[in-house]
Design a protein around this nucleic acid. Structure first.
Length: 422
RNA sequence: GCGGGUAUAGCUCAGUAGGUAGAGCGUCAGAUUGUGGUUCUGAAUGUCACGGGUUCGAGACCCGUUACUCGCCCCA
């Protein structure tokens, strides 16, 4: 057997790779409309960046990272920490108090692969660093929503919550643990474990008995102070003004330690078990945690593979690849060389063309021209070279027109190419 | 880390009650000497995932391994 690709990876083959490029191009357009600039960071970072940024106790850091060189480096499992690192390292805060950055990049997590989940996967996302204004929260959610709508996705569900500040949360966790401790024996094994490691995440459970217990549990929202609540309400109010259809979900908790205040998630029914299409939120403590000055920030990340799954489900109409204008069939050494010459001129004018490199029969070459969807075909043999005259065949109807002279042929195709591409 | 499913040609799959492999699609070639699409003819390609067992004989039955896949956990 051949050596196979590593588990959880995939090859982007011709066709699919074209669609991926289309998606990325369109994403860049929308990000640009919102005045976000692209940032690219290394594929790997110092392991300590993720330990400090994402949180030692999170699943990702504790068991899903690809680390090497005796744990010195790690392939990036997410982009927020690297973006903030680059932001600080390059003093981007000196350029302007608010930096709006976006990225499209691949990530690595050592998880068990399944539908919509890979070990190497791609995300697009945005980070707005430097503003604590509620309107940037609203704009961030609007940005994510706009992207989906640009691709014809109108039915994803937007869930929003606020998890308050660190101290509000710590307060609440005490109350929650106090409440849950009375029912600890009724909780699922998972929730009992989380009771110690990450009590907030118990709110996320899908276990029926857990949900029963949680029904009367205290709500985080009730333990937030008025400022936090009114900040949240202002975001909601403005989303309404912007016609963004959200729903509040007071049990929405995010997995990384760095989130504060606003959190949101977009889900889609058509995704199967991994129905989370996009997730994000505010992380006002991270910049400081990574050694910068206290700086409010907010961002989101979306999975490109899951995005593609939805587009496929919705039968999104991708444009087709640039068509081959001319297929040059040749007979013999001399005409092969001329063929390459003609193509050289055509390509210099941006005209896509192809010829045979397998020394096949004219019949086979014509079949090839047909298969690759060439708009025109021309046969170059001794006669054509001697008379400097060509039969240009239109593949769609089989009609041929006579053209004398290389230059005329090239001119003719140039005109044809222009009329089609407009 | 824990469960379920699957494993036959490049792809989609047949393979009957165990008798040492087939179809469709695709690929390639040919149907008068230099012209595609339809049609016809022909060709190539499989250690039937791997290892062991039962049997005179296993792609089919049993056991193990591996890979893939779907789910749990968590996440995009």
């Amino acid at each position: 057997m051949f050596i196979q690709k590593p588990k959880g990876t995939y090859d982007l083959l011709p066709g699919r790779s074209f669609q991926r490029n289309f998606i990325e191009t369109k994403l860049r357009e929308v990000f640009s409309d919102f005045n976000y600039s692209e940032i690219r960071t290394p594929a790997f970072e110092k392991t300590s960046l993720f330990r400090r940024g994402i949180g030692e106790e999170t699943d990702i850091v504790s068991k899903e990272m690809y680390s090497f060189n005796e744990d010195e480096f790690t392939l990036k499992p997410e982009m927020t920490a690297p973006v903030i690192r680059a932001y600080l390292e390059n003093s981007l805060y000196n350029e302007s108090p608010l930096k709006k950055l976006f990225y499209i990049s691949n990530m690595f997590r050592r998880e068990r692969p399944q539908a919509g989940r890979f070990r190497e996967f791609s995300q697009y996302g945005a980070e707005a660093i430097g503003s604590g204004d509620y309107l940037i929260d609203a704009e961030m959610i609007l940005l994510a929503d706009t992207i989906l709508k640009k691709f014809g996705i109108y039915d994803s569900k937007i869930k929003i919550n606020t998890i308050g500040s660190l101290s509000e949360r710590e307060n609440y966790i005490k109350v929650l643990k106090n409440y849950l401790s009375k029912y600890i024996n009724e909780l699922s094994a998972d929730s009992r474990r989380r009771f110690e490691t990450n009590p907030l995440r118990i709110l996320d459970t899908k276990d029926k008995k857990d949900l029963e217990v949680l029904k009367d549990a205290p709500l985080l929202y009730d333990y937030l102070n008025e400022d936090t609540k009114s900040f949240f309400e202002k975001i909601l109010f403005n989303l309404k003004l912007l016609n963004v259809n959200y729903e509040t979900d007071y049990r929405l908790v995010r997995g990384f330690d760095y989130y504060t205040s606003t959190t949101f998630e977009f889900t889609s029914e058509s995704l199967g078990a991994q129905n989370s299409l996009l997730g994000g939120g505010r992380y006002d403590l991270l910049v400081e945690q990574l050694g910068g000055k206290p700086t409010p920030a907010i961002g989101f990340a979306a999975g490109i593979e899951r995005f593609e799954m939805i587009l496929e489900e919705k039968k999104f109409c991708f444009p087709s690849e640039k068509e081959i204008i001319l297929y040059v069939a040749s007979i013999g050494e001399e005409s092969k060389i001329s063929a390459l010459n003609i193509m050289n001129s055509l390509r210099n004018s941006g005209i896509k063309c192809e010829t045979d490199f397998l020394n096949r029969s004219v019949k086979s070459q014509m079949k090839e021209a047909n298969k690759c969807n060439a708009r025109y075909a021309v046969v170059i043999g001794e006669n054509e070279l001697k008379n400097n005259s060509f039969q240009l065949k239109k593949m769609s109807d089989g009609n041929e027109i006579s053209i004398t002279n290389f230059e005329n042929l090239i001119e003719y195709l140039k005109n044809e190419n222009q009329t089609s591409s407009s």
